[in-house]
Amino acid sequence: MHKEQIIQALSAVREQKPLVVNITNYVVMNNTANALLAIGASPIMAHSQQELAEMMSFAGALVINIGTLDSVWTPRMTYAVEQANANNKIVVLDPVGCGASQLRTQTSREIAKLANQLIIRANASEIIALAGEQAQSKGVDALDSSDTALDAAKFLVAEYGASVVISGATDYVVTQDSVVKLDNGDAMMPYVTGMGCTLTALTGAFAAVGEHTGLAAAAVLGVVGEIAAEQSRGPGSLQLNLLDELYLLDEQRLSERLKLS
């Protein structure tokens, strides 16, 4: 059943071209906007508090990524989440580097608590830290494997009524009803900055068309990353090939490649 839902969600994104509001970090704005365009969605990198209420009235979803956090960004983020709540829109939270500093951990928890409809997309270390366990974190890179974060993810599902996507060598999508395991992707993917942030942005596109688990985005990026890596000499060409493969991905290749359990 999952495979059919993923394929339908991909078609829906391409047909509806949802607008996704991204309050994301300076490092990945270009990557994530290009990925959203390649999959068929419409990105907007709106950061001004003066326009966020208006934006969230007609956007499909809100992506909050705390990668380059500071005192100016935090109030914008919380305001945007309030506007998403007011307009019954889903919030996708990427708690980048949660656990690396108190600021990141506290801000992530505040945003998670505030959002009425929430998907959390993070690596294992960030999930563990967000749940309040001792995570091994080296800046924004995970030192924990994704299966070690399953209990923490289940806690977050219960605590925030969220869906949780743990990304890593193996991806897990944890909801109230199920745990789905995805074994796609490639070992070269972590060598491109913002690969997780790209997954978060894509999660926003799928959420905007009603796919509220995060599964479709994780499936699509895993498959596309795998295909792109096969023709890439290194991280530079992987970045280019990934965008091409997102654009070219069809239902048949997705269905054939998907390793889901």
Rank of each mutant, 00 (worst) to 15 (best):
E4Y: 11
E4Q: 12
A12V: 07
R14H: 05
Q16N: 14
K17N: 13
K17F: 13
K17Y: 10
V20A: 07
N22R: 02
T24K: 11
T24R: 11
V27N: 02
V28N: 01
M29Q: 13
N31K: 14
T32V: 15
A33P: 00
A33C: 04
N34A: 10
A35P: 13
L36G: 01
L36R: 01
I39M: 10
A41M: 05
S48W: 11
S48Q: 14
Q50N: 14
Q50F: 12
Q50S: 14
E51A: 14
E51L: 14
M56N: 00
S57N: 11
V63M: 04
I64T: 09
I66C: 07
I66D: 03
G67M: 04
L69G: 07
L69T: 04
L69C: 11
D70T: 02
R76D: 09
Y79E: 13
A80R: 00
A80G: 00
A86G: 07
A86M: 07
N88K: 15
V91D: 06
V92D: 00
D94E: 07
P95Q: 06
P95L: 08
V96T: 10
C98E: 05
C98R: 03
A100R: 01
S101Q: 06
S101T: 12
L103M: 11
T107L: 10
S108K: 01
E110N: 07
A112G: 03
K113W: 09
K113R: 12
K113I: 08
A115S: 08
N116Y: 07
L118P: 11
I120R: 02
R121D: 03
N123Y: 03
A124Y: 03
S125V: 10
E126N: 02
I127P: 05
I127M: 06
A129R: 04
A131K: 00
E133S: 09
Q136S: 12
S137Q: 15
D141V: 05
D141G: 01
A142Q: 07
S145M: 12
S146H: 09
S146Y: 04
A149L: 06
D151T: 15
A153F: 03
A158F: 07
A158S: 13
Y160C: 11
S163P: 07
I166N: 01
S167K: 13
D171F: 00
V173Q: 03
Q176T: 12
V180D: 04
L182K: 03
D183L: 14
Y191N: 14
V192F: 14
T193S: 08
G194I: 00
G196H: 12
C197D: 03
T200N: 14
T200K: 13
A201M: 04
A201W: 00
L202C: 08
A208C: 08
A208R: 03
V209F: 08
H212S: 13
G214M: 14
L215H: 01
A217K: 04
A218D: 00
A218N: 02
A218F: 02
A219G: 10
G222Y: 10
V224W: 02
V224S: 05
V224E: 04
G225N: 06
I227V: 14
A229E: 06
A229I: 04
A229N: 04
E230L: 14
R233G: 11
G234K: 10
G234H: 06
S237M: 15
S237T: 15
Q239T: 15
L242E: 00
E245F: 11
L249M: 05
E251P: 10
L254W: 03
L254Q: 04
E256T: 15
E256F: 12
R257D: 09
R257C: 13
L258T: 01
L260H: 05
